[in-house]
Design a binder for these strands. Structure first.
Length: 872
RNA sequence: GCCCCCGUGGCGGAAUUGGUAGACGCGCGCGACUCAAAAUCGCGUUCCGCAAGGAGUGCCGGUUCGACCCCGGCCGGGGGCACCA
């Protein structure tokens, strides 16, 4: 019997409509089943979806469909992270309003997502630029302000003096503005901050409870929060200006205090500012430091520079021991007290500085074995390693740094030279942005009343639509009327805050809003939010490991503290998926390399080597490195082309095959074709046999050929269920391939009418299992096959099948036999055979006898149901 | 510069987390079907070697009966670094 090819173009829209009509993916509020909240990081509406989105949303969809089948009340919403810089860039470049551009992109991308057949509850959709959403965000801001979690202070920004604009770090290229090319300056502005440091200790400690997160993400967050125990002390300053006689310092290495050779303060330290007032040289130096920019990377990689203030710092242990006091460009005002003590022997940065300024290097400890002294590489062993302390708070001793740090702290405290202190590296979160396309900060500045919060009754503060981008700077600032407003307190003329919020604020609570997306009276319904949160499984890119996830953890706490819900953590399970990358192609053009889109490239095989040609002209071009898909390198594959050509199921299946989901995946046309062949193969086999199976009752067999089929099906079912639970999609795919290989011949026999009743029953059951396992990954194909088997209901509504325990265990197992750790033979034994029986059988094997000769074995290691190793 | 991760055949990857390295897929080779091609099906495919056998998980060293897996040191690639999202 021949069968028509599976036609996804016809089948996919049909099933998508069927699901929608049945409302299978909508989450009822009053459902008694256990809730399961699956969420993928919502996209920025950049224009079109890319393969990274396809991968991310396919993974989430498999989880959602699988958990739904497992009996959970699944919530799987989608929305748009819609504020941000690109919309303003589009406005400038193409004279289109940011809102218009954004909503047009959303429409396009929504249609693309719909074509993927995702099991999303679209009734919950919103965009963060919707007035309804940012109104509630303004309300949250006011609550946080009232609670002391929002405040204003001075802080630095990158300033482009030519464009007269604040620049984002990514807009600063090698110290210059990306458009103007002018050297970037830093400016101090009064800006709004969220007091995330109020939760520093809690955010750190609670990491231990996040069992459902990858260890690497927890480690990154722990390092970012940077909790450290150390010594707080003060230097007495000699020849310092009045009021600066004491200099507070925090050091994490009290054990190295006797190796100090200088002290240094940040260019923004109050003392440095004081000195700059009267000393032009100091002022000039501080200005140089500020030009480095605001990014940590720029500060760390800049040449270490210092300026000797002439002031001397008296060591706390000995008032006569004076250290020079420098202003240094690598000291940060934001961390600790903005001042450090330098110990060159045991810190590379301090050593570089000491060598540059000819300062002494005192070894505090030396390697316990060699006793080697420091020359041009600082000696920084792990704190758990034992070393010989030669110059510290006690006798010469061999001990770990950890022990010496504890002992030093105790000694300093006892002597009254300082005290123990816990310090965090985490800084407060600056949220002010001098931009138009963001959530307005609901504040009014009044001459007489000062900073006045907008009363909640006056919300929302809407963005004005009539803005222009032909002038530099923030359009809200030079809008003719928007900023002028009466003071909510005294009624006098006042002006609005024109800064908008960092877009990270928008994405810090959207997961909570999805629970009750249409609430108008408040950000979230506290009871519903508390019931649905935390998100059961959150899926997104590893690039968000620190900022987005940490800000969300802070927001959950802030919202709980201000009474919006009672939730500790936003995301119970976290999965970070890898990127979709593609090879790049380029050709030389006018002496420069020009990127070529893969669509214009033809690949040929030349003696086993891949060679690329420009399809149109036949010109040979270069195959470049494999990189993250980006428009600038033209290595982008449009998902629409794949879906139009092969169907959504093929695209989905390919995204789940082969590469482990946490790792990057390389896009290749060959891989897509492989996935598509599989889709067709399943249809050919199941669809072909369906006619002879539609009247057969599914029945597992335990004996004979039919038994082999049922065993394979149930073993696969067990494995795939475990794989889906762990998001191990590539392994599930491999298992299903194996099962299909096993089913191929029997299904052909059913098709040919040569299969007996037992075989037909087993095949019918195996097909149903196969279809249900495929359903989360290739849902349209699954429905088509299901229907062909004579079922009139939807796979999407079927409960997950249960495997039969007796079919998944084998009665005999094959043990590999090693001699000295190398596999030399095999031994078939009954499951549960006892140790001595196995040992006896192994020793009588020919290979073992030959290896032993006439000597007895030194040792025989039997690992039950695993392996046997004979040591000779 | 700092923090985190990754490295296995021609390619994507698997290995029950210290127990048979290379499952499954792609590619390639051979064969079947076909007038022919496509599609499909079957067999083979880590490397060296005719073979017996030997080598082998980025490199060097260590622990162990046994190491892709644990430890130390290097090399290469990626992510993040607080205003890209």
């Amino acid at each position: 019997m021949t069968i028509e090819r599976y036609n996804p173009r016809e089948a996919e829209p049909r099933w998508q409509q069927a699901w929608q009509q049945a409302g299978v993916f909508e989450t009822p509020a009053d459902d008694p089943r256990a809730p399961y909240y699956v969420l993928e990081m919502f996209p920025y509406p950049s224009g079109r979806i890319h393969m990274g989105h396809v991968r991310n949303y396919t993974m989430g969809d498999v989880v959602a469909r699988f958990k739904r089948a497992c009996g959970y009340n699944v919530m799987h919403p989608m929305g748009w992270d819609a504020f941000g810089l690109p919309a303003e860039n589009a406005a400038k470049e193409r004279d289109i309003h940011p809102g218009e551009w954004t909503y047009a992109n959303i429409a396009t991308m929504k249609a693309q997502l719909k074509a993927m057949g995702l099991s999303l509850d679209w009734t919950r959709e919103f965009a963060t630029c919707d007035v309804a959403y940012y109104t509630q965000q303004q309300s949250l801001f006011l609550d946080m302000l009232e609670d002391g979690l929002a405040y204003r202070r001075q802080s630095k920004v990158n300033w482009d003096p030519v464009d007269e604009t604040v620049l984002a770090n990514e807009q600063v290229i090698e110290g210059r503005g990306w458009r103007s090319g002018a050297p970037v300056e830093t400016r101090e502005l009064t800006q709004w901050f969220f007091r995330i440091t109020a939760f520093a200790a809690e955010l750190d400690a609670a990491l231990d409870t996040l069992d459902g997160w990858p260890e690497k993400v927890r480690t990154m967050q722990r390092n970012w929060i940077g909790k450290s125990e150390g010594l707080h002390f003060e230097f007495g300053l000699v020849d310092a200006p009045e009021g600066f006689e004491r200099l507070p310092i925090f050091t994490t290495r009290p054990d190295t205090m006797y190796g100090a050779s200088f002290a240094a303060i940040a260019a923004d330290h109050p003392l440095a500012r004081k000195l700059a007032e009267t000393n032009p040289e100091v002022a000039a130096f501080c200005e140089t430091c500020r030009r480095t920019g605001t990014s940590q990377e720029a500060i760390d990689t800049a040449e270490k520079l210092g300026f000797d203030t002439g002031i001397r710092a008296a060591h706390p242990t000995d008032a006569n021991w004076h250290l020079p006091l420098y202003i240094a460009n690598f000291v940060l005002m934001d961390y600790g007290t903005g001042a450090i003590v330098g110990c060159p022997a045991h810190d590379q940065r301090d050593l570089d500085f000491a060598l540059k300024y000819d300062l002494p290097v005192h070894d505090v400890f030396v390697p316990a074995d060699t006793g080697e002294r420091v020359s041009d590489t600082a000696f920084v062993p792990p704190k758990t390693q034992t070393v010989r302390y030669v110059r510290w708070a006690g006798e010469e001793t061999v001990q770990t740094c950890r022990a010496a740090m504890d002992a030093s702290l105790a000694k300093f405290e006892a002597a009254g030279w300082g005290r123990r202190q816990t310090q965090f590296r985490l800084r407060d979160w600056g949220i002010s942005r001098q931009r138009y396309w963001g959530c307005p900060i609901p504040i009014v500045h009044c001459e007489s009343c000062g900073v006045v919060p907008v009363p909640k009754a006056d919300l929302p503060i809407k963005l004005p639509d009539d803005v222009t981008f032909d002038r530099p700077g923030n359009p809200l600032d030079h809008h003719p009327t928007w900023r002028h407003v009466a003071c909510p307190q005294c009624g006098a003329d006042a002006r609005r805050e024109t800064d908008t919020m960092d877009t990270f604020v928008d994405s810090s609570w959207y997961y909570a809003r999805f629970v009750t997306p249409h609430e108008t009276a408040r950000p979230v319904d506290p009871q519903a939010a508390t019931r649905w949160l935390p998100v059961t499984q959150y899926i997104g890119g590893i690039e968000h490991a620190i900022l987005h996830l940490l800000y969300s953890r802070f927001f959950t706490r802030a919202m709980s503290r201000t009474g919006h819900m009672a939730v500790d953590e936003p995301f119970e399970g976290l999965f970070t998926q890898g990127m979709v990358v593609h090879e790049t192609f380029s050709r030389a053009r006018d002496g420069r390399d020009e990127w070529v889109s893969p669509e214009d490239v033809r690949i040929e095989d030349r003696g086993g080597e891949r060679v690329a040609f420009l399809a149109e002209t036949g010109e040979e071009i270069a195959i470049g490195s494999i990189e993250k898909m980006s428009k600038s390198k033209k290595n982008v594959i449009d998902p629409d082309d794949i879906i139009a050509g092969y169907g959504a199921d093929t695209a989905r299946f390919f995204m789940l095959s082969d590469s482990p989901p946490e790792r990057d995946v390389i896009w290749s046309e060959a891989g897509v074709e492989g996935a598509h062949r599989f889709v067709q193969r399943v249809w050919r086999l199941v669809g072909g046999a369906a006619g002879n199976l539609s009247d057969v009752a599914p029945l597992a067999a335990s004996e004979g050929d039919a038994g082999e089929i049922s065993k394979a099906a149930h073993k696969t079912l067990k494995g795939v269920g475990e794989d889906f639970g762990r998001l191990g999609f590539n392994k599930a795919v491999a298992r299903i391939y194996e099962l299909v290989n096993v089913l191929a011949a029997p299904l052909q026999a059913v098709s040919d009418g040569t299969a007996d009743a037992a075989m037909c029953g087993a095949c019918r059951e195996a097909c149903e299992i196969l279809i249900q396992m495929l359903a989360p990954m290739t849902p349209h194909l699954a429905e088509t096959c299901w229907h062909a088997l004579g079922r009139s209901d939807l796979v999407a509504e079927q409960p997950w099948p249960v495997f039969d325990e007796t079919l998944v265990v084998d009665s005999t197992i094959t043990l590999p036999v090693q001699i000295n750790g190398k596999k030399r033979g095999e031994l078939a034994v009954a499951r549960g055979a006892d140790h001595s029986h196995i040992e006896e059988a192994v020793l009588s094997l020919d290979v073992v006898r030959a290896a032993l000769g006439d000597k007895p074995p030194r040792k025989v290691i039997v690992v039950p149901e695993r392996i046997v190793n004979v040591v000779v």
